[in-house]
Simulated assay, not measured.
Amino acid sequence: MCRWLAYSGTPIRLEELLYKPRYSLIDQSMHSRFGVETTNGDGFGVGWYPVDGPGEPTLFRGVGPAWSDANLRELARSTMSPLFLAHIRASTGTPVQQTNCHPFRYEHWLWLHNGSIRDFHRLKRDLVLAVDPELYPFMAGSTDSEVMFYLALTYGLRDRPVAAVERMAGLVESVGRTHGVEQPLQMTVATTDGDKTWCFRYSSEGHSRSLYYSTAISALHQLYPENERLRRLSDETRLVVSEPLADLEGAWQPVPESSYGVIQKGDDELGRFEPAVP
């Protein structure tokens, strides 16, 4: 499987999360603690928005292991962003190529995924045929993750993100059952339009991959008043991760099974995720 993170809040350099924490994303690419595979070396990617506000995000993706990419290290050292997604990949069978590396981008939207569509080779044709014909030309890779993204776009991601992802999941499960695949979907997903970020944790078998969100920064300021790194972050700052980046007591909360979260200005949201057949 894969590991990922989604950051929103005070602008920071990418290296603050990709490299500096004890269990940084780069560290997880070599020896993940909570993943199905220990090593995630089948490519990587980062997508980030500019400091001066939403707009089309920039992508940097590579096919080699994240731990040995000198360009990623240089970029992370010099790039600041208030909102970015980062991903390290462990392929579930599709080729290791740049177009298969996350995040995926369409206009000002980004999408990344950990998990798989079981027996994707059997379900792929039916799923791809459900993608809006106007969106189909923008699909560049061969992964189940990208197909999920374009199905969500087809079902209204830009207007009603939660409902669109629920319809995508419902279609995958319906097509899976048609082909005799009883538990076809395993996913943790993050997607953003540059303003809000939506995160999802769901699997057909009810035993989803790990996912955590950071405790409110205001609470962490009280718990760790001497922590210089935390003092630099605003109360709006939030982080969602496949696995915690550090052993800081009280800093991480597990995302409940079959749920979604919305990171936004003001109060965040947490709700029940329920697939719906389109």
Rank of each mutant, 00 (worst) to 15 (best):
Y7M: 05
P11D: 03
Y150H: 10
M30A: 05
P57D: 07
C199Q: 13
P275F: 08
L233M: 10
G35K: 11
F149V: 01
R105P: 09
R118W: 08
E226C: 04
I26Y: 00
L211D: 04
G194T: 01
E107K: 13
Q183H: 12
I117W: 03
Y7G: 01
G35M: 11
G45W: 01
R201K: 15
T58F: 11
Q222P: 05
L245E: 12
D52L: 09
P21A: 13
A86Y: 06
G9H: 04
E236V: 00
M168L: 08
L151Y: 02
L17I: 08
L223M: 14
R201W: 09
G55E: 06
I117G: 00
W111N: 03
V63M: 11
R33Y: 08
Y23F: 15
L25E: 04
I88P: 00
E226W: 13
M187C: 12
H207D: 15
Q28E: 13
L171I: 12
E274K: 15
A76R: 04
Y49C: 00
G55V: 01
L239K: 00
T143H: 05
R158N: 13
F138C: 09
G115F: 01
P244M: 03
P103C: 07
L5F: 02
Y202K: 06
G62H: 01
R167G: 03
R201P: 12
Y49M: 01
H221M: 10
L75P: 01
S218C: 06
P54Q: 03
I117C: 00
G64F: 02
G41K: 03
G180S: 07
R231D: 14
V46M: 11
A6H: 12
E257Q: 14
Q28P: 10
W252K: 02
S32M: 01
Q253D: 10
